[in-house]
Amino acid sequence: MEIEKAYSLSDYDKREAAQIEALKAAAIEPYPDPVEWLEEEIKRNVLLTSTEHLIDLGKRFSVWPNTFFPACCAFEVISAAASRFDFSRFGMEVLRPSPRQADLMIIAGTVTWKLAPAMRRVYDQMAEPKWVIAMGACTISGGAFRGSYSVVPGINRIVPVDVYIPGCPPRPEGVINGFMTLHRKIAKDKLIKKD
């Protein structure tokens, strides 16, 4: 049955292919990791006001993750969310598929060049403040598939990453350790930055 479409699907294919090639050409140098929290170690003697402390507790213990689950590591995040390893103890059980309603993007699985523009678009749609966790060896460096013609060798070429969780796949305890590291990092991130 011939269906009249408003636009042709093959034009769509060509446009998307152009986006993929453009992203691949631009993603040569990785983004620097946001590590200003390390310098805060030296300025330990700054006192937090009580308002900042409350806001800080609120931010840290109610991070809502966005589900971006390409491959196998996804099942370890799901295990971490299920009843045995439960990450709702940390306030994170609200897994939001929509990036507009999430603060944290957990990328769990291999990212390929075909998927990269979609991933960048999801990251751009999240509102500040936002954080990114790279989970598993494939997101850190390409993992077991490094050298392949279609795998991104480390997603820090496409989005800036806050916490890396190594493993293939990391155990749910490792995932929870990654979240606790992220919480410590968020605690150091002051609301009003004093330079």
């Binding site: 049955m1 269906i3 479409k5 699907l9 769509y12 689950f69 390409p70 491959a71 996804a74 699985g109 291999t110 390929t112 075909k114 998927l115 979609a118 598939f145 392949s148 013609y149 279609s150 795998v151």
Partner: peptide, 29 residues
């Protein structure tokens, strides 16, 4: 169930055409 994309053409609510797009996890094994 993973990174699967569907381009679905609707006439109202009913599906009249469907095109699956894969390759988002093609790792060259």
């Amino acid at each position: 169930h993973g990174v699967f994309r569907m381009r679905v053409t609707f006439d109202g609510e009913v599906i009249v055409d469907f095109e699956p797009v894969f390759g988002y996890l093609h790792r060259g094994i």
